[in-house]
Amino acid sequence: MRFDFNRGYGFVQPEDGGRAVYVDARALYRSGIKSIFPGQTFRFEIWKDEKGRIAARNLRL
């Protein structure tokens, strides 16, 4: 996982080894997650927006 709170976004790696998924700080805050660190595991849904971009949402520790 790579996340930069100063920039407000990062990327998470699915357990299946697939492509890293974008995650926005707002998605973390909406999920009640206040901090994350490398190696931490959590569950998330992969969501595709109207422009075809893929992002993580509904994150759970």
Rank of each mutant, 00 (worst) to 15 (best):
residue 56 A to N: 07
residue 21 V to G: 10
residue 25 A to W: 15
residue 45 E to C: 15
residue 8 G to I: 10
residue 15 E to K: 13
residue 6 N to P: 10
residue 21 V to H: 06
residue 34 K to G: 13
residue 57 R to G: 12
residue 36 I to M: 07
residue 54 I to G: 04
residue 44 F to M: 09
residue 21 V to I: 06
residue 4 D to I: 01
residue 10 G to M: 03
residue 31 S to M: 00
residue 43 R to G: 10
residue 36 I to Y: 09
residue 15 E to W: 10
residue 37 F to M: 06
residue 35 S to I: 01
residue 48 K to V: 10
residue 20 A to T: 05
residue 36 I to C: 06
residue 54 I to V: 04
residue 56 A to S: 12
residue 19 R to N: 11
residue 13 Q to N: 14
residue 20 A to W: 11
residue 7 R to L: 07
residue 50 E to M: 13
residue 44 F to D: 03
residue 38 P to C: 01
residue 13 Q to Y: 12
residue 5 F to C: 00
residue 44 F to Y: 08
residue 40 Q to R: 07
residue 33 I to N: 03
residue 48 K to F: 10
residue 48 K to T: 14
residue 14 P to N: 05
residue 52 G to W: 06
residue 56 A to I: 06
residue 14 P to A: 05
residue 30 R to G: 13
residue 31 S to I: 01
residue 33 I to M: 07
residue 3 F to R: 00
residue 54 I to S: 04
residue 45 E to Q: 15
residue 33 I to G: 09
residue 53 R to W: 12
residue 44 F to R: 01
residue 9 Y to V: 02
residue 24 D to Q: 15
residue 39 G to N: 09
residue 28 L to A: 02
residue 2 R to G: 12
residue 24 D to R: 15
residue 42 F to P: 01
residue 33 I to R: 01
residue 27 A to T: 05
residue 8 G to C: 11
residue 51 K to C: 06
residue 36 I to R: 01
residue 32 G to V: 07
residue 35 S to T: 07
residue 7 R to A: 01
residue 2 R to Y: 15
residue 27 A to G: 07
residue 14 P to L: 04
residue 52 G to V: 00
residue 28 L to C: 06
residue 26 R to K: 14
residue 58 N to L: 08
residue 19 R to E: 07
residue 31 S to H: 02
residue 51 K to Y: 09
residue 18 G to R: 06
residue 42 F to L: 02
residue 5 F to W: 11
residue 52 G to F: 06
residue 33 I to D: 11
residue 44 F to W: 06
residue 20 A to C: 07
residue 28 L to Q: 06
residue 21 V to M: 02
residue 23 V to I: 02
residue 4 D to L: 03
residue 9 Y to S: 00
residue 43 R to H: 12
residue 41 T to M: 12
residue 50 E to V: 12
residue 31 S to R: 02
residue 16 D to T: 11
residue 45 E to R: 15
residue 9 Y to R: 00
